[in-house]
Amino acid sequence: MNHHITLVVNGVVREASVPARRLLSDCLRHDLGLTGTHVGCEHGVCGACTVLLDGEPVRSCLTFAVTVDGREITTVEGLATGGELSPVQRAFAECHGLQCGFCTPGFLCTATAFLRDNPAPDDEEVLEAISGNLCRCTGYQNIIKAVHRAAEIQAEEAG
């Protein structure tokens, strides 16, 4: 049996008819065509599928789509505003914070929420913030650099 759900994804009202067992990650990717959210393990460890649910990072592979009916979701496709890349997106490119790019959407969503809550983090806080996301390519050094750089860009633009 399918369930009718309504989600607000990246500011747009989206409707879907999904079985109860459909993961949010699959719903976003396959029902709504938003393939920017990636699935790396489907058991909640790698963090590639991280999206923002009412602003908070969640693992969309551990969330059933039917449980978020009516909620607001931001995916990597929604991070840029009006065609302008967000500070986090710009910083990742500037600092070479990605290689294959598969884990990147999860890092971008995680870092976006983190820097909203903590706009001037220290080294330990940045490390802690991204320590739930796996990357097999970069060795994290440039991701850490990118999060710091994003904080800088954010501050520059706010100032």
Partner: peptide
């Protein structure tokens, strides 16, 4: 030089295998 690939990968416009063939 900054990477060519990044523009699509940081905006969710990359095309990985499972992103194809909807």
């Amino acid at each position: 030089v900054q990477r060519r690939e990044d523009a699509r990968l940081i905006t969710g416009r990359g095309r990985f295998l499972d992103d194809l063939g909807g």
